Computed example of a mutant assay.
Amino acid sequence: MKIAFCLYKYFPFGGLQRDFLRVALACQARDHAIRVYTLEWRGDIPAGFEVILVPVRGLTNLRRYQRFSGWVASHLAAHPVHRVVGFNKMPGLDVYFAADSCFEEKARTQRGSLYRLSARYRHFSAYERAVFGREAQVEILILSPLQERLFQTYHGTPVERFHLLPPGISPDRRAPPDAAVIRSSVRSEFGLAGDQFLLLQLGSGFRTKGLDRSLKALAALPPALRARCRLFAIGDDDPRFFQGQARLLGVAELVRILPGRSDIPRVLLGADLLLHPAYNENTGTVLLEALVAGLPVLTTSVCGYAHYVVEADAGVVIDEPFMQDSLDRALLGMLDDESARRRWQANGLAFAEVADIYANAERAADVILK
């Protein structure tokens, strides 16, 4: 079979992009040909992939996305394939991998009524209906039962079109036998003393992931404890706003904002706590990556995968509605309680041994190819 994958941008460190690559490689491993339509590709191209950089321009993203969909439809008409799989919502798909949360729900609960008169709303609402509308024929690979219910609420999507997938955690995120040696190496590389805490925040899209909340929580720690902390935020995003916020909060010397990097499994082993106080998050793969590395997690309940933190008893989940004071107190409590951190670490490692969290790409390929 020939399978076309569509996504607006590919770069190595995005969660959606990593999901795409794993699924595409799983299909290729079953001897199917892979074509990719994208506006931008950063990083190496896997052997055997046909990557087509769609040559459209536009003054706004909306215009580029509209032209992208039109160009791809024309190209597919001239060069047909057996399946069209999307990782962004758009018309013309056979299968959609639901890496993004329900746009309609956010537009109606987090925005004012005037927003629904905007061109942006009309565009993204129409593209979401093209996938989830009652009359659409798209098969949907869903990652969160909560998101499935939201899509059904706003679009009336028939339940039989949803295919719930397990998380797709790469086995290389699990703590290896020499984890202690790697931890020492990472901390030495970053210049961390034995009594210092490395607080880690991972993921592109710093605003959505709640980096501003993490900076406030760091600033709220008692001075002696705060001086022992270092907060590293790693992701593909513009750091300037958050660097300014850190200066205003008086914690700039404790914060490093780094671009995406390929050795995240090592960095997870060198950290003491994962901070992920997201404003919204369809899944939150990084939460599970931390758990299986033995890294305690502090996150918010809006994340689709936050329930795994509770089930594994491997950290703390802040309930909604979010209160900054709750995050501040939770961070202080976690740093003050060494025995709890050791328990959370052990629980995360035990969870990694038994949880069904590794087969996402294979299950997705089953649906795409059936």
Rank of each mutant, 00 (worst) to 15 (best):
I52M: 12
N347Y: 08
T299G: 04
D328K: 14
A4H: 07
L369V: 02
V159A: 15
I234H: 03
F11N: 10
E338R: 08
H155W: 14
M90G: 11
L215F: 05
P166Y: 05
A365Y: 01
E353A: 06
V84W: 02
R108P: 01
A4W: 08
V51L: 12
D313Y: 02
H32R: 07
L202V: 10
R261K: 10
T153H: 11
P80E: 09
V56L: 09
P12K: 03
D44P: 03
S74G: 10
N88I: 08
G43Y: 06
A77E: 14
A246C: 00
V255N: 01
A364Q: 01
G70K: 04
I368A: 05
D237S: 12
L221D: 04
R213L: 13
V159P: 06
L254W: 09
E128R: 11
V310M: 11
R83S: 04
E40D: 15
V317R: 03
Y127Q: 14
A217F: 13
V186E: 10
E128I: 09
A359L: 14
V56D: 02
G194H: 02
L327A: 09
N280T: 15
L146G: 11
C27F: 07
H79E: 07
E281C: 05
Y8H: 15
R256G: 00
I264F: 12
S262E: 14
R207L: 11
G86N: 02
R63N: 12
R35H: 11
V302R: 00
V51C: 14
R266G: 14
L39T: 07
G250D: 04
D366K: 04
C102R: 01
F20T: 00
P158D: 02
I45E: 03
F49N: 00
T109F: 08
F87G: 10
S125E: 11
A340H: 04
L275Q: 05
E160F: 03
S339P: 01
F241H: 00
Q324L: 14
P46V: 07
Q28M: 08
P222H: 10
